[in-house]
Nucleic acid binder design. Sequence first.
DNA 1: CATACTCTATTCTCTGTCGG
DNA 2: CCGACAGAGAATAGAGTATG
Length: 224
Amino acid sequence: MALIEEREGRRDANSGYSRVFGNQQLGSLISRVHATSISAGNELEKIISSLANTSITMDDIMDENFSEGVYLITKNAVKKSKLKLLSNLEPDLLIFIIENKRRHCYIVELKDGDNFDTKKSSGEKENMKKFESHISKKIQFTTSIHFCCFNQDSKHMIVNGFKGRISEEEALTGKELCEIINVDFYKVVSMREKDQEANFKFFLDSLVEIPQVSSYLKTKKHLL
DNA sequence: CATACTCTATTCTCTGTCGG
DNA sequence: CCGACAGAGAATAGAGTATG
């Protein structure tokens, strides 16, 4: 769950957030908000894999021990397989399409934003290509690499964010990713929205409980 | 179990290049 | 030559994971 309430954040007075406000309680509250945002990114991958068909291992793929279907294999599952590779070259997701006449592996880098970090994008594409050439030698599948910005609906914007370093085919929206793996995009979105109300309340409740904040709000009573 | 490393998001600053 | 822009690097922060 991406709940602010469950995040630690930095509680001490020496965090940058405390300095921003000159108030430790407010600083630690903001720190917890930030921690929640980070946590939500990790959660996205977990939600997606919980809704997809993950009933196959990387070893099964290499041993040709499978039947028709669409399967998702996460980064961690790849790490546990015998497909040994230099560390940190692994993409976030591998999708295997196993059909009568088609065997394809989508290699996907997933991001919970609407833009990729331009500093790392060149390196990321290089790593993806390295991984692609490595895995192609081990499996009997065609392959393609993709960069998915889960919260971006426009392929064009993804390519743009990448400063044109990737093609339209290599860009993937969240909706497209979900279509490939037979996952309801809107279910993923609604699962993530579930915490919003609790977060909204927790944040504002915590905020008005801070003495400095509440005494300030009392001077603003005319606004209510 | 502690430590090191990588991931996420975001902002600021410095530097270099391109075009008018 | 100067401004606009792009890119790299550093900084703020914590979470998560791998490993000895």
